[in-house]
Structures are given as C-alpha cells and as structure tokens.
Amino acid sequence: MELRLQHLSRRYGTKSAVDDVSVNFVPGVYGLLGANGAGKTTLMRMISGILDASSGEIRLNGRTIQELGEKYYAHLGYIPQNFGFYPEFTAREFMLYMAAVKGLGRRRAKSRTETLLSMVNLQDAADKKIKSYSGGMKQRLGIAQAELNNPSILILDEPTAGLDPKERVRFRNLISDFAKEKIVILSTHIVSDVSYIADTILMMKNGRFLLNEPISTVTDDIRGKVWEVVVPEQKAAEYSARFSVVNLHHENNMVRLRMINEDVPAAGAVMVEPGVEDLFLYYFGEEAQEER
C-alpha cells in the first residue's frame, strides 16, 4: 500500500498553509512535528479528504481520492484535533453510530464495538453518557471509533493534547497496538509522544517539510552538537540568552543545562546523545521554546 502526496498545496487567500508538499507513505508510524501554524492540521485534513487541496493530488495505490470516492474513505480512520462528541449518546451508541457511518454491517459493528471498547478499557462505562466522560476517556473513545473499520490509514491529529502524562502513555501504547500494517500519521507538538512510537519523523515549517527521516537516523544531523553543562544559578540566565537551551534542571545551588551548539559552549560542557526533542528545538528555535 502506498499513499502518495504530489505537490500538494492549500492556500487561504495569499497565505499558503501547505506549500507544494510531496511525500510517499508506506505502512509505518509517521510522527508529524511542527510548531503551531506549521500546516500539520491542514495537511491531515487534506489527507482525510475533508478539505480540498488548492493544487496537487493525493493518490492511494496510484488512484486519486476523487477516483476512489467512498473506497478511499473506507481505508481511513481519523481523530481530528478538538474532536467533538454527542454528549447525550452512550459510548456504545456512539460506536454503533460511527460504525454505520463507516459502512460496517450490523453484526460486525456490534463485535468491533465490543472488542474496541474493551481494548480502550471503556467496557464498564460503555452505557454511560459521553457527557459524563473525562478528557482521557473521550480520547480513548476517539481512537476506538477511528479503529472501527480497521483502517489501513490512521490519521491522528494532536491526539494527546490535554491528557495527563499517565493517559498519554496509555494512549501511545494503544496507538502502537493499532499501528501494525497501517500507515499511521501522528501529528503533535509533544515531541516525546512520537519519539517512542514513530518509525519516521516528518518536520513541517511554514507549510513545507523540513525533514523526512527514519527515527534511527533522524538525529544524525545534530550528533556532536548537543551538550550538557552544570553552572551556578546566576550564570544560567546568561547561558539561556546565548545558547539554544533545551532543558534546564536545578540541582542544589547549581543548574544543569542541556543545549545545542555547533562548538563546545563552555568549559566543562559534556557532549551527549541527541534526542528528537533536541532536533525539534534545533529546527524551530524560539518558536518551539515559546510553545514549550
């Protein structure tokens, strides 16, 4: 299976939200990173077939989504950002309704509903109205509905936003379970979410891809540029102003700084193994710092 985006653009007036993006997706988990306004959500909406491209096309196994029509949507599972629910429905009713929207027959709808509610640990609350659910429960229900048709393309737009750390771990594990043999495109600006489960990292800025690399080699560009140094508290501010500081940790009266710099930033600085978060900061600099 191959999902191909060819010269895909989306303009709003004179502004390009997505600008001439081309990429091939094959089964695997893709972490789509970018600061707010980078064009991630617009791109995912176009892939989901709910927003028309201004130019370019999307092809699944060689055929455009317009040619495929309903057949394309049958391959899709989608959790949009700020996904709304029907508060007066129970989770079970919501799942059965979504199963009908996705074209599942009655028997399959029932069995998939029970299986998925069990997988996302909502079976005991299946007959409670969604209005009584917590944010985490709603997100789990969101992924369960996306999985109803066992989609071969799973699109997750900021699925962990607003979740506490425990829920986020749980959610990541669920996505990993569902991801086998699928194209999973996971958009987030929480870098740690993708660094655990993504096979490939895509970075977007100003509507374009800056980077498209396997997770195993994605940090190669900044290898040898990530440093840690322990400095007195009064020096920390000065270092923060001079260098790209990724992390800052107080230890007694000292501060441990993690920073990215081409050369040794200070005497005593130790070169460390780079992570995806370091890479994110390297590319997005102050934009990313503001979001964090």
Partner: peptide, 19 residues
C-alpha cells in the same frame, strides 16, 4: 460543524452519501 464532529463524519465511508 459547531461541535467539531463534521471532520469524523465526512471522513467516514458514507459521510458524504448515506449519512
């Protein structure tokens, strides 16, 4: 549109037809 459920419905197989 207001509740944000349009995205999920329209990306479903029958979102633009039978629904």
């Amino acid at each position: 549109y207001q509740a944000g459920t349009d995205a999920v419905l329209l990306s479903g197989k029958y979102g633009k037809t039978k629904l």
